[in-house]
Design a protein around this nucleic acid. Sequence first.
DNA 1: TTGAAAGCGCTAACAA
DNA 2: TTGTTAGCGCTTTCAA
Lengths: 339, 339
Amino acid sequence: MDRPPTMKDVARAAGVSVMTVSRAFKSDRSVSQQTREKVREIAEKMGYVFDSTAANLRSQKSGFIAVTIPTIDNGNFSDTVGSLSAHLNASGLQILLGYSDYSIEKEEELIEQLLRRRPEAIVVTGGRHTERTRRLLKQAGIPVVEMWDLPTDPIDHVVGFSNASTMEMMVDHLVEQGYQRIAFVGGDTVWDTRGADRRRGFVTGMARHGLSGQARFIAGGKPPISMRQGADAMTELLEQYPDTEAVICVSDPAAFGATTECMRRGLVIPQDMAVAGFGGYELSSISHPTITTVDPRPMDIGSQTAKLISFLLNSAERHEGSKRVEISPVLRPGASTMR
Amino acid sequence: MDRPPTMKDVARAAGVSVMTVSRAFKSDRSVSQQTREKVREIAEKMGYVFDSTAANLRSQKSGFIAVTIPTIDNGNFSDTVGSLSAHLNASGLQILLGYSDYSIEKEEELIEQLLRRRPEAIVVTGGRHTERTRRLLKQAGIPVVEMWDLPTDPIDHVVGFSNASTMEMMVDHLVEQGYQRIAFVGGDTVWDTRGADRRRGFVTGMARHGLSGQARFIAGGKPPISMRQGADAMTELLEQYPDTEAVICVSDPAAFGATTECMRRGLVIPQDMAVAGFGGYELSSISHPTITTVDPRPMDIGSQTAKLISFLLNSAERHEGSKRVEISPVLRPGASTMR
DNA sequence: TTGAAAGCGCTAACAA
DNA sequence: TTGTTAGCGCTTTCAA
């Protein structure tokens, strides 16, 4: 016959019961060393591949952790996922990844789909979700972690930072350097809630220094904002507000695009124009001049989330209250804002 | 009781059999419109979530496509995965992603783990694998696609391009521009087989023009090669071979790092030094000067792979022979090599 | 259009 | 240390 061999086939070939085969494939079960080796050897020879699907159904444990991110096309999110994945794999857990494309409606659909796979926990990016998403997550009966944000009304657990605060830090830094007429370049804020938070932080930070940030906002389009969009936004900015001294971009790639546009126009950074970004990308530390950025430590978000999940799954008891892990982003001053 | 509701619970609440509930959740089965609506409404109210695990076990279809890439920390691979994912989702398939970290041993382990989830097809990056990996894949009884390469001895299907040829193209371009003393910067070739192929192409291309490429090779370390490593390699190159006129880097980020190092040293690109990369990253088209690169069209690799998989899964019959889809990378000349 | 019975491949629970 | 029995939550198959 042609169908792939099952445990039953292996059991028959090895002259033992299926239960013995099952045990031979676990690590800490009671099987004699001799039997285990024999069974494994025969299984390998037969080309037997263990079927997790069946095991999961019976034991009601999928070994999956569901994760949603807006897009894979963003080094910060992929760093978080990479780190999360590496840490969870060590615990024998696998990531089930989905992309919401910056849409909370798509996120709802995605989460519904992911929950059908019976993940043991679910990690979502950001603090804004549809009402139905919130309900689905609360009813799911598994740990829920919101990451990359500090929601005011969290669903359950949180591993994140305040996007608004990072931009307040940045405004403080620029004002300290003597800049006053500061602009903000971001994406359409209906889409990118974290981008919107950053813009809000910019406005608040400016107000604290008695400056108006409201006026100088350039929308670069749908996120993730590309380098090209950053460059185009710079052009628009120079047309609309030619007296601008400094620009804060919603992300490092956009900031890099903005610097190249300045160079093309013969503007000297940071004398004629200061440029700052967000994300702590390698690009910012190596470009010439180096670009001031805020590093949100995406790998730490991943590892802290993994740690939290391992804790939640391993402690047998139901937990009282929800954990909240705050990550502290770091301002990394570059040559682009030091005049 | 506290456990999540099952189809049985929904059936009881709706006063129908489980089979009717099951049918109400499929699209094209025979259920009366009235019954379907009633069942779905009750299910939603109860907070019922369909359990794919059980459905998959019974129907022997997981809805998973397993995919392995070396790392998520590489824009080219994530572009391919993003595109693949988007196209497969449209067919109701979900990606099960794993990272091999550029190690064929880790890849073997990873593939073994992924096969236990009973994917309906598997996509692996690259043409070099352990003997056991090849055996596992051949025995798996599902379509196997090797992407991002054109292996000489493919396991099954292939969607890729010749990494060596891209570098021959690049050498041709540089020689055409009048460069002769050309160097290559890449990673440790034992790790990155695609990087090794590119280096081979470089050597072949040079030889075709009667030039020696063998000599000027700078190893930048374990892949993926960072911008910093590209910059450091440039430093090493200038020390070892100060007469070098042009450098081809294994990837765009490395090439960008190399250009920044040149700038720091006051070298003018492309007059004093030409720099070229690989990957067709946005970075290359927007940096100043723009950097010559080869675009391997990673999104096309993803969409073509998705298309192939859909075809293979939908045609009921066993297929004779293996498909081979060749992608044509495009040379994108930039200012960095045009003297 | 609906339902009853059987079973997908594994493991929990218990027995020997 | 090993085996037996039952069943995880669905869908296939067949019957009404």
